[in-house]
Amino acid sequence: MAIATRTRKSPRRERLEAAVNYPIDWLEERSGLIGGIRYFLFRKVPGDTNWFHTLGSATLTAFLVQAVTGVILAMYYKPEPKTAYASIQHITNDVTLGWLVRGMHKWGASVFIILMFFHMARVFLFGAYKYPRELNWIIGVMLLVIGMLEGFTGYLLPWDQTAYWATIVGINLNGTAPFLGPYIAQFLRGGAEIGPDTLARFYSMHMLLIPGAIFALIGLHLYLVVRLGVSSPPWSKEAAGADWVEEQEVSTDGRRAGLTRPVPRNYVRGQRGDSA
């Protein structure tokens, strides 16, 4: 009877649970948010995923660190040719923990890019870019490109000799693109000559335009990850096309599932009868 007594809740515990659940229920009834969180987090993943599957989340974490530290740096940074370098020195030497937050942002930038490449390599080597996940690969490529643009625009901001000349070379490199190159270079410089407008527009792109686009694309990227489900590693016995495809033949909408469609939610592992 130990079980019975354990399932009976004490009045105190019941009151506690009611107190915890009340605000959650209140929110859920009015927003459906809890359901959204469940949809996002409590999904089925293949049993044989491994640590390599965490590289995407690692990239996401790196990006969030950049976003948070960047917002704080923006409270002290002054995007003006006459003040930019001095304000960076001020952040590094005077502001409380400024050296740390700036260091996190500076080194984190490289971590973010490197993790993106690792994640991409994992997706490539696992063949996870194949149907129906090509669109997520395409979104990933966009993220890679604007992620590097984010690095390029951020590199100018310390406004020291390295930043200045690296940006000159980078802009002129864009200028050598066939046909549109000269206009792209002028657009990046904000005119024919590098000057105050160049710094201001790089700052605007670096802290508003590109991060906004990255957030939006990450949203799409994760939506597709949830919608399509995470793919199994290539060596998986559960790999698409294995013997259980037959059993999955009819999914809820009457079309074939398994090979090309995500496995229906009610699919239970071990049902196929070959494991045992």
Partner: peptide, 11 residues
Amino acid sequence: MALGPAFGKQG
């Protein structure tokens, strides 16, 4: 406003 400078003159 964003693209204008791409067509601006050397000055």
